[in-house]
């Protein structure tokens, strides 16, 4: 029984990990916490809904289009909303991301209405049974996609010119600028990739829940929690954090005690706060050095 919950937790957790990865990437290169990640994810998932249910495309054809859409959305947000506001202090930019989120929410309600939508699984078919673990094919896709995407993403950072520039900008913005790295184009790329990661998470989560205008907020909050748990400045930390949050949440469901179940969200945060009290820089974050 326990194995079952662990597997479910890891599947759920890999979705949080994708979400966290997107947010950490944006934060590392631009210092902005994207509070609009939820609505950007939600919007991308609705696009996936239109493609698969509305136009009848197969999941695998829709996925790249959704990724592209997420990428363009991120780029547009950076170009049209954040760059014009770059004079403002960083906390104010959080409000910009929220403003964009509200606008997307409104647009989604015009286009798709308020009724919850359901998306098809990536692969249909009977669940697989491995010993005493039951796992759906879609869960396997979720898990596999997360692994493939994170590996691809790290390869991109490690082995491409853009990736190297992104890492440089994340380390030291001014230094990168002096070396002639186009920091503003990097910011645009990070937004594109960060939102695209969220978009993938969105189309993978949507079949597991009913897609509506607010459902992604909880996913984002857990992604945020995961990112913080992992250290917020660490990309591998985001993935580890995501898996841990998913695992913890799933184990809480396993506890046969009603109160624990009702307080699932709260307890996830409590755990994170306790962990942070012990290790303020998060699991894989760089230690906080006192700046004198």
């Amino acid at each position: 029984m326990l194995e079952q919950y662990i597997v479910l937790g890891l599947v759920q957790g890999s979705l949080y990990a994708l979400m966290a990865l997107g947010m950490v990437l944006i934060f590392k290169t631009t210092d902005i916490v994207n509070f609009g990640q939820a609505d950007m994810t939600m919007f991308s998932a609705y696009v996936g809904f239109t493609l698969t249910v509305g136009l009848g495309w197969p999941f695998w054809a829709a996925l790249p289009v959704v990724i592209l859409f997420g990428f363009l959305l991120g780029v547009a947000v950076e170009r049209l909303a954040l760059r014009p506001a770059k004079e403002a202090p960083v906390v104010s930019l959080l409000i910009v991301t929220l403003g964009v989120a509200l606008m997307l929410n409104a647009l989604a309600s015009w286009i798709w209405g308020f009724d919850p939508k359901s998306l098809p699984y990536a692969i249909s078919g009977p669940p697989l049974v491995l010993g005493n673990i039951i796992i759906t094919r879609h869960d396997l896709v979720v898990f596999g996609t997360t692994i493939v995407l994170s590996l691809g993403f790290f390869a991109l950072l490690k082995f491409t010119k853009v990736g190297t520039a992104m890492r440089a900008a994340a380390q030291n913005k001014l230094g990168a600028q002096l070396l002639g790295i186009p920091v503003s184009r990097i910011a645009m790329m990070s937004w594109g990739l960060g939102v695209a990661l969220g978009a993938v998470a969105g189309v993978l989560i949507a079949p597991l829940v009913f897609l509506d205008l607010t459902v992604m907020v909880f996913v984002m909050l857990k992604g945020f929690a995961a990112a913080v748990l992992g250290g917020f400045t660490s990309l591998p930390g985001a993935i580890v954090g995501g898996l841990l949050v998913g695992l913890f949440e799933s184990l809480l469901i396993a506890v046969p005690f009603e109160l624990i179940n009702q307080l699932k969200e709260t307890l996830v945060f409590v755990l994170i706060i306790v962990l942070l009290a012990v290790r303020p820089q998060g699991l894989l974050g760089e230690p906080i050095h006192r700046r004198v």
Binding site: A81, P84, A85, E87, A88, P89, S92, L93, I95, V96, L98, G99, V100, A101, L102, M103, L104, N105, A106, L107, S109
Partner: peptide, 18 residues
């Protein structure tokens, strides 16, 4: 409404960064 509210937040920060 929601759209304008969001747009207002964005525009205020763009034109009045402080």
């Amino acid at each position: 409404y929601t759209f304008l509210y969001g747009a207002a937040l964005v525009l205020v920060i763009i034109f009045m960064p402080y």
